[in-house]
Write a protein that binds this DNA or RNA. Sequence first.
DNA 1: ATATTTGTCAACCAAACGGTTAAACCAAAT
DNA 2: ATTTGGTTTAACCGTTTGGTTGACAAATAT
Lengths: 203, 203
Amino acid sequence: MPKIKDTDTENQILNAAKKVFQEKGMDGARMQEIADKAKINKSMLHYYYRSKQLLFEAVFKNAFALLAPQLNAILNDDSSIEEKVISFTNNYISFVVKHPYLPSFIIQELNRNPKFILKLKDQKGFPNIEKFKKQVVLEIEQGILKPIKGEQLFINILALNIFPFVASPLVKAFVNINDTEFKQLMVDRKTEVANFIINAIKV
Amino acid sequence: MPKIKDTDTENQILNAAKKVFQEKGMDGARMQEIADKAKINKSMLHYYYRSKQLLFEAVFKNAFALLAPQLNAILNDDSSIEEKVISFTNNYISFVVKHPYLPSFIIQELNRNPKFILKLKDQKGFPNIEKFKKQVVLEIEQGILKPIKGEQLFINILALNIFPFVASPLVKAFVNINDTEFKQLMVDRKTEVANFIINAIKV
DNA sequence: ATATTTGTCAACCAAACGGTTAAACCAAAT
DNA sequence: ATTTGGTTTAACCGTTTGGTTGACAAATAT
């Protein structure tokens, strides 16, 4: 071992690759731009990650690993559905503000290559809906919730939270607001969406 | 070999370009693939549309022109909010089944180039939310609806309807269902989503 | 019939792309 | 002091890309 494990370059590359891939997607990203942003020679990209595909997969898995815990919070936690809805909508907005390109990046790239998710599904920590479904059935039996399928409720929660960020240019144009007003509208949604869902499902 | 009155070529090109662009996006699309699919020489693409960018814009505007009337139905119609929600959720699913790649195509490409929507905003027929907002205020005053901002309600309606199609690979993986089950779930949503929204907003 | 315009194609082109190579570099081990 | 082996670089390579050219055929105008 000649040098003291110099993982710095590898990290610079991954950070630069994150930015470029998440902003431009696999097809739009250029290896040269990643190298420039990481301030290293283009050959280093291949030295550390062999190919564009493998570098991309490193970035993608990294991004997905950030998103998964957010979802597991609502799927595997032991609190009530109502509590889950409140905490999830609250947390998710803060999360997206930190990683603005992340949700649309994941969705866009999975649309480009839907088979890719199979590689992720096997890994532990991949969100699983079974516990959530049982909980919904139970709370309906207990007369807490109106009848609804767990799958549909989960899709609705995801949709109301994720969609405005994924489709933000469209939403801004339709609602006819600028970036500042949009940001405020999203902050308002922290309580707005939770109330909306709870009104919809509570008896 | 030109046959009798051949404006047909231009249409073949546009149809092929629609398929390729909507499936692979601007960056992933290849002019050669479009030419092959249209069964014409690659030079014809430039003869009729000058550049990849202009061909793409033709496809994009065409796609947007299909989506806009769907949204105007909920924004400018004279029926009640409840009726609008029911008819929109009902119609939208049928629409997406006919044009599966369309919503994610529009969203993806606007994320890639958000400025592009400014070109569309000027055109007449571009969805405008003002009438809808006034209607929401009115129905709240009349005691029909619970208090909610028109913008938020509109975003929620869009989200619940559009999101599952835009994020279909993700949804399929999380809910752990195959294509057939997903299709069924989407059909169920025709009534499911309408009920969900109405429960959430009706007094 | 002849000339002009429009439509079509095969061949070609320069630039950009992802990836490779071979040599230099440098800190630790001998 | 020399060897060693991971690290870095400039130059290079084959392929693909969007786009162009020039010749030519078909349709239309004269």
